[in-house]
């Protein structure tokens, strides 16, 4: 289990401290598909980067009670919309690189996913389309043999059919020990695939719920997110009204 205890991350911008994460305490047990939601700048990416040790932070993050370091980092994989593969290597080269560095690399899964998405094995990844790059990024994260798969906006640039396919594959492929932490804005799309939702707002964890429980209460994940965010659906109309009134005032 990954445990975050009172994790706080501060950034300094122009001599002003900004809290990207505020006292986040949460547990991520094995075998769950967890959605991480929040508006832009809510701290989703920062949270993942803290877990992976890319950023320094206050508080503690442990994996089965031990700090995350070189000894257990292989249990975590990461797919990001920024892409973390090597643009001048082919898929085949990446396969060899991963096999060398991650002994638990799932070659069977890699092959199935490469075939499924019909990605070329011998082409430099930098020359592929954005959609193909996203798919490849996900394939690597899924094939690493990690227990915890962290995905940060992995579908940016993929069409709806592609995303649907991937969700289904994800559900079919994941084993009980595998946990997915999926950060995305596509709440409606993933609500039937995630079992738990974490909501971040301005660096604070403002919501943590089971999607099954929500469904039993007859509520959708989107409703829950809107409620938690105190989303005012009328604000668009209000803004348009104001704009109209301003326009009349000027004429």
């Amino acid at each position: 289990m990954i445990e975050l205890n009172h994790v706080t991350k501060r950034y300094w911008t122009q001599n002003i401290a900004k809290q990207a994460l505020k006292d986040v305490t949460v547990q991520l047990p094995q075998g769950q598909i967890i959605g991480l939601f929040g508006e832009n700048g809510a701290g989703k990416t920062t949270l993942m980067k803290c877990i992976l040790g890319f950023l320094s932070y206050q508080g503690s993050i442990t994996l089965d009670g031990a700090p995350i370091d070189r000894r257990n980092i292989h249990r975590l994989s990461f797919a990001t919309c920024e892409h973390s593969f090597f643009p001048h290597l082919t898929a085949q080269d990446h396969r060899e690189f991963y096999r060398h560095h991650f002994p638990a690399f799932r070659d069977d899964r890699f092959r199935v996913l490469m075939d499924f998405f019909r990605l070329p094995m011998g082409r430099e990844m930098g020359h592929c389309s954005t959609g193909q790059k996203n798919q490849f990024e996900l394939i690597l994260a899924m094939s690493q043999g990690a227990d915890y798969i962290l995905m940060d906006e992995p579908f940016a640039g993929n069409d709806i059919f592609n995303r649907e396919d991937f969700y289904k594959l994800l559900l079919g492929m994941l084993e009980e020990r595998e946990t997915v932490l999926l950060s995305t804005h596509l709440i409606e799309e993933v609500q039937h695939f995630v079992g738990r939702a974490l909501l971040l707002r301005e660096g604070e964890l403002v919501g943590d719920c089971s999607v099954t429980e929500l469904e039993e209460q007859g509520r959708s994940l989107v409703d829950y997110v809107k409620e938690t965010y105190q989303y005012r659906s009328g604000r668009v109309l209000e803004a348009l009204d104001r704009l109209e009134q301003d326009g009349e005032g000027r004429t």
């Binding site: 992976l52 040790g53 890319f54 070189r70 000894r71 980092i73 292989h74 975590l76 994989s77 990461f78 990001t80 920024e82 892409h83 973390s84 593969f85 090597f86 643009p87 001048h88 560095h101 991650f102 990844m125 930098g126």
Partner: peptide, 18 residues
């Protein structure tokens, strides 16, 4: 940092010297 952020992968490798 060019063309991707492969630094994320390099920093995740179990071999700390790689």
């Amino acid at each position: 940092y060019q063309g991707s952020r492969s630094i994320y992968l390099m920093r995740r490798l179990p071999d700390r010297w790689e």
